[in-house]
Simulated assay, not measured.
Amino acid sequence: MDQGAGGVHELLCIVEQIALSNNLSLDRLTTPEARSILGSYRVVVASTGNLGYSIGVVGRAFGLVAEIHMSADAKAWKKDRLRDIGADVVEHACDYSETIARARVAAENRRDTMFVDDEGSRHLLTGYAVAADELARQLDARGVRVDAETPLVVYLPCGVGGAPGGITYGLKRRFGDAVATVFVEPVASPCVMVALASGLASPPSVYQFGCDNGTIADGLAVPRASALMLDAVGEAIDAVVAVTDSAMLDWVRTAWNRSALRLEPSAAAAFAAHAPFNLAAKHEPEWPRLDRATHLFWATGGSKVPDPEFTALLSPDYADAEG
């Protein structure tokens, strides 16, 4: 399931705000007059790929100027994909947290500029929460019951935390204690894990705990978790599992070989967390029906990975080649 819903929701809120401030009819936003006005506005966001792409696609569709700031972890093909749709890509030789800070500064005091804050946007968080309704409909269509006797365990790849946090909020509102959400992070970038374990009021950086934030999972390479997300749903997170790059790569290959499912490493993280979560949780008294649970893996992307890049991921020598 895609994580673009939060970005689309945020962008639509921005378009609505611009339209209302310019007396534009909301049902005529694609007219030449409306696009002329919308084209004088710029939306700025930091991203390693998926969020920037959703902002770029929808923003450009309405005629907005889309400025995407990308960290050193972002893949070259994701930058090219954004340029192909007419977005302005600003590259930074730093990690994602610093890229967000630089993008925020770049947007300050600029006329007709809107900043999408991946660390602190409630519009993003609530946009992601809508995914719970979509999931509920899919489960109903398949006759999957979710209750105390047959719980649901959802594995969510986690970067800064906005997407899994919003999804957790939506799932808990709908299913309550019958659902457990498991945040999945790279061992080099366990920003939510260290934030919850530290007990500090402000989320610490993984660097403070000896982690280097170096991972093949570019979408999850985040050294500091969202304070907004932790404040909103931190106590509702049931578990956090850190997985290795090699485990993610193994699941990229397994998903392709068994099911022709095309995943990038960030998306494969959810599958890699299944075994360690079950090992840790099987003796927990609050989960007596874990053996009857439905396990759901949130795959966040991969269908757009260029063929040469994906073929390389399937090679058993890829990890060694990457160093």
Rank of each mutant, 00 (worst) to 15 (best):
A275W: 06
L12K: 03
N50P: 01
A148K: 10
S303R: 12
D291G: 06
S226Q: 07
R102P: 00
A148P: 00
T215A: 11
L152F: 06
G170H: 01
S303Q: 11
P204N: 00
L26M: 03
P308H: 07
A312H: 07
C13Q: 13
R110T: 13
A293F: 01
G214T: 14
V182M: 04
L82Q: 09
V130N: 13
K282R: 15
P204G: 04
P164S: 07
T215R: 12
A232P: 01
E98Y: 00
G39R: 00
P265R: 03
H92I: 03
G159R: 07
A76D: 13
V105R: 12
P308R: 05
G170K: 00
L139M: 13
A280I: 02
I100V: 15
V43L: 07
S54H: 04
M114F: 14
W256A: 14
V43C: 07
A280K: 11
V187S: 01
G301Y: 06
A321R: 15
G170A: 03
A201T: 08
A275S: 12
N257M: 10
A5Y: 12
A61Y: 14
A242P: 03
G143R: 13
E91T: 13
P157G: 12
R35N: 06
S315F: 04
A273T: 05
Y155H: 13
G120W: 04
F115A: 06
W287S: 01
A76Q: 14
Q138P: 02
T31V: 11
D118A: 14
D212V: 03
L249N: 02
R174S: 04
K172Y: 05
L196Q: 14
D140R: 15
Y155E: 03
L51V: 12
L139A: 12
S259W: 15
W298I: 05
M248G: 00
G127N: 10
L125M: 12
F62Q: 05
A221V: 02
P204H: 01
A273M: 05
V130R: 11
R28V: 08
A93R: 14
G210R: 00
T254M: 10
G170Y: 02
P157R: 09
R111F: 11
A293L: 06
P308F: 00
F175V: 02
G52H: 10
Y96I: 06
A227I: 02
G4K: 15
A103R: 00
D2P: 15
A312N: 08
H295A: 04
A195L: 04
D140W: 05
R60G: 05
T254K: 14
E286P: 00
D140F: 11
L314V: 14
C13F: 08
E67P: 03
T254E: 15
Q138W: 13
I100Q: 10
H283I: 01
E235R: 11
P285L: 12
M70K: 11
I55G: 03
L200N: 02
S246C: 07
D245C: 06
S36R: 08
R28D: 15
G161K: 03
L313P: 09
V160C: 06
